[in-house]
Nucleic acid binder design. Structure first.
Lengths: 195, 195
DNA sequence: CTTCTATCTGAACGCCTGTTCATATACCAT
DNA sequence: ATGGTATATGAACAGGCGTTCAGATAGAAG
């Protein structure tokens, strides 16, 4: 039998990506089979190929969608001119955005090595754009004398690395609320980049 | 044919772990086959089983050895009582130790999900011991009034996350020397934990 | 009521997987 | 020289892999 009920094109596609997302995040891209993904969706493996040309593209699309969502969400903010306010906003945005998408974040930097060179370059470019938006805040603050860092590029990477650490331990309903976490990290970031 | 020349037990074992280390770091545990590892060593896949009961144990041993080396190296330091000096020493130690072992570091926190629950618990305990040694520095500094952080546990994780970021971008012979990198990060850490 | 098309099945393809084991060899000790 | 042992081979096992495709079905369109 086939097409067990109704037209499913607009439903099955997202469900496949959803299943792939969770499985890739939990077990890793290489350890997950197309049959596992299909099983989670409730469909045979062959059906997946109506929605993705191959397994690699499935991974790529997940990462690309995530990075584009990130950039779009950040661009949509009403941004501050003042470097200190802008940095505070960045910290809060980054923490909240990433905590809402733990699986995507996990994949986005655990599975980079499983991308083809072309796909890797694509994702890297998006990541760079995001990092650059933080660096430009730091540079402006540096020029205005509000910040004092030895190297804005390194400071950028250090801040992002520090913030990314949050998703490895934060659990909603834990000891600290989201607001408190944000406050604690903003405190550390602010002091780290100030004289 | 077998045993193409001489007794190899003391040579082949380390060579297998070396090959596995590089391959796991580059392609990920799940994406590397026993035949690939054997090929790099110059033996057939079956020969690997004279040195490891299975693939999982090979990964586990690499991670365990790494974590134990880390703890031993840190314990062997002549440590300072003064929290500020101790923290500075920790930062320098952490950066140098990890930059010397990029493959081990990569594996040690990319392949955690490929460990069996028992092996995972083992590695996690070692990691916790290392984190605790940093947290005790921060706590002592907090009590003495030299440091000022909202939460020593979070500060611990934030500092380690920030320092770990170094290995993702540092290339020896690059724009900054190791000493400079150490200095830049110490600056940021120091400011982040000070009032 | 028929036709058409989107969607899915289920089997098949060739290849790769971790692991085991009988067998063969090279060296060491006697 | 002989026997024993450590070490390696190479074939085999059962099963899983990504991917393809002819054929079946369900619903939409006329």
């Amino acid at each position: 039998m086939a097409r067990t009920q109704g037209s499913h094109s607009d439903i099955t596609g997202p469900r496949i990506r959803e299943a792939a997302l969770g499985l890739f995040a939990r077990h890793g891209f290489a350890a997950v089979s197309m049959r596992q993904i299909a099983g989670e969706v409730g469909v045979q493996a062959g059906a997946l190929y109506n929605y993705t040309p191959d397994k690699q593209s499935l991974l790529f699309r997940l990462m690309q969608d995530h990075m584009q969502d990130l950039l779009t969400a950040y661009d949509d903010l009403d941004r501050f001119d003042d470097p200190k306010k802008a940095l505070c906003q960045f910290v809060g945005f980054h923490i909240r955005f990433h905590l809402q998408r733990p699986d995507e974040v996990f994949i986005a930097y655990m599975e980079l090595r499983n991308l083809t060179p072309e796909n890797f370059a694509d994702i890297e470019a998006l990541r760079r754009r995001y990092e650059d938006s933080l660096e430009s805040i730091l540079r402006k603050g540096q020029e205005s004398g509000q910040f004092s860092v030895a190297d804005t590029k390194i400071a950028t990477l250090a801040v992002i690395a520090m913030l990314n650490g949050v998703i490895t331990w934060y659990r909603s309903g834990g000891r600290l609320s989201l607001d408190e976490v944000e406050q604690v990290y903003w405190d550390m970031v602010r002091k780290a980049v100030t004289a």
